[in-house]
């Protein structure tokens, strides 16, 4: 009855040379190995003095400088939030990378930065990142731990308080990078109403439209995962982005080939990928 789809694919056995892999997972296994191998290969090449391609321009990340600069001119604080995600969410890592950069800029320009989080452990981590950025910029005394604020792990209790902070602290720049759900529009529109310059990034396709509508710059989806490499210009990290692009090219080729085969009536590729 639920023939739909799943039943037709059940109980596939891997090809003999991958006999040690559990049934139905061979293609996935090969893909993961490919990703690891490409990453490893590129890092080795870099260590051997090789070079890798640069990442294309990402306007939202370039705009961070402008945002912090604006806040400095106006003498008002920058607000940063890593969203409502936990430490286990990969989007949080993109947030850490961007925060490190923002922290260095605010330290250099001597502008106040307020970080709000919705997860106590994230608070601890963001505290460490901003502290580190101030230390690196040679201004450890300018760091104010009271501005790294854990608000609440409940989505709307958190947003309620961010809205309050926007109004009370007269935030001039609002940078939102991380996991955002329904509070996205609440924060973005409230930020727009106080006239803050806003940069947002999320992989949450449900909330991206609001960011696109209400923010000055929006990083869409995967762009935010490239942030740590883009901002740090660390060659090893850039290497991982290059490796990811190889995987993307592979997928692109597979999709084009698969569509052509499917159009002429062959399920060959589909079957291989399901083994």
């Amino acid at each position: 009855m639920f023939s739909m789809y799943w039943a037709a694919e059940a109980a596939k056995t891997p090809p003999p040379w991958l006999g040690f892999v559990s049934g139905g997972l061979a293609a996935q296994f090969v893909f993961v190995v490919f990703l690891f191998a490409a990453t490893y290969g590129l890092i080795r090449r870099l260590q051997g003095g090789g070079r890798v391609a640069a990442i294309r321009k990402i306007a939202g990340l370039d705009a961070i400088n402008e945002a912090v600069g604006r806040a400095t001119e106006m003498g008002r604080p920058v607000h940063f939030t890593p969203g409502i995600g936990a430490t286990s969410d990969p989007q949080s890592y993109a947030a850490f990378a961007v925060l490190g950069e923002v922290g260095k800029l605010t330290a250099r320009y001597d502008t106040r930065i307020i970080v709000t989080t919705a997860n106590a452990i994230m608070t601890a981590i963001t505290d460490e990142i901003v502290r580190g950025a101030y230390l690196e910029s040679g201004r450890p005394d300018a760091f104010n731990p009271d501005d790294i604020r854990y608000l609440s792990s409940a989505q709307f209790a958190y947003s309620a308080q961010v809205l309050g902070i926007f109004e009370r602290e007269k935030v001039a720049a609002n940078i939102m990078v991380g996991v955002f759900a329904a509070e996205a529009l609440l924060l973005a529109e409230a930020g727009a109403q106080i006239g803050a310059i806003q940069i947002a990034a999320s992989t949450n396709t449900f909330q991206l439209p609001f960011f696109v509508a209400a923010c000055d710059y929006t990083l869409i989806g995967d762009e935010m995962y490239a942030a740590s490499a883009y901002l740090s210009k660390d060659p090893a990290l850039t290497g991982t982005v290059v490796a990811e692009d190889w995987a993307k090219m592979l997928i692109l080729g597979v999709v084009v080939l698969g569509a052509i085969l499917n159009t002429v009536g062959s399920k060959w590729l589909q079957n291989i990928l399901n083994r």
Binding site: F2, M4, W6, A7, E9, A10, A182, F206
Partner: peptide, 11 residues
Amino acid sequence: KMPLFGGTVSV
């Protein structure tokens, strides 16, 4: 490989 269905908000 089980059937999954249900409902969600329009967002």
